[in-house]
Amino acid sequence: MTLIRIILKRLLSMSITLIGVAVIVFFIIRIVPGNPIAMMLPPGAGEEDIARLKALYGFDKTLPEQFLIWVRGILGGDFGTSITSRQPVMSLVLGRLPATLELSIMALVMAVMIGGALALIGTRQRGGKAEALIDVTNGVSLSVPDFLWGLLFILLFGVLWPVFHISGRVSPALDLPFVTNFYLFESLLRLRFDIWLDLVSHMFMPALALAIPLAAIIAQLLKQSLKETMHLDYVTLARTKGYSENHVILREALPNAILPTLTLVGVQFTFLIGGTVIIERLFSYEGLGNMAIDAVINRDLPLIQGIVILFAVIFTTVNLLVDLTYALLNPRLRHG
């Protein structure tokens, strides 16, 4: 009952956020200098040509009129047409979305696995050398931004010791039998492990570069709250019952200590998705982020708008999912 109310409330606030994002992106990209018409015309084009092109793309109307046309289109499922490729924005964006989602989720899984393992080891060995080493590693990982990790990986595992692919999403020579763009997922379903391995080899470095800062945050925060939880009475009581240290950490402390980390992972995951823009560029990975940069360079206004709206939808959905997970894991919230 309460769960449904939480969802409804969040859906309402989601739609308000999306309207706000739509307004801001629409006007901002029209205020900044540079316009798409100038990019499309050959040098020395006459006033008449400019006016004709403007009319073709609707840029001759006033801004509020343009905005209304755009919003009306969205409500009918039409995000406009890309100026550079002349294809519907919707299909362009949705075609790239799976690539970015797969990359982000792979990065998230890596971050949770690395960060979680470090936090558990650090808690188990608290006060010892292993914990000190983990703290130092975390500090370094946090102070280096993701794209620098990306460059370092390209140098290490792409050039000096070439074990991974450094560019693209999949080897062009491979024949892809897929019907969706979720290559990683579909290759598993179709048991095409050759393609799957090729995909992973392409994604590994960009995903790891995105994962490292988040892994460090997870390790640090989770270890901190685990250590605090380890002093609580119910943990001590579990010890007196004869349970081992490992059991006490995993079964008694972890379910309680994980809640603050979970909220943070939700917030940080949206930053990670934002990070895909530069990381995808670095690794020439054909996702949304790469497309966004091209769209900005070409002043492809409808495409920029479409991508920004999609990112906003992803961010708000992630936040909703985090809140729901939180409610499911924390019984006090579920009943309250």
Binding site: D233, Y234, T236, G242, Y243
Partner: peptide, 19 residues
């Protein structure tokens, strides 16, 4: 200890795992 000794803790509000 687990088999032969047991503890009744001081503060019942913090001695049960809330999760």
């Amino acid at each position: 200890i687990g088999a032969k000794v047991a503890l009744i803790p001081q503060d019942p509000l913090t001695a049960l795992n809330p999760a």
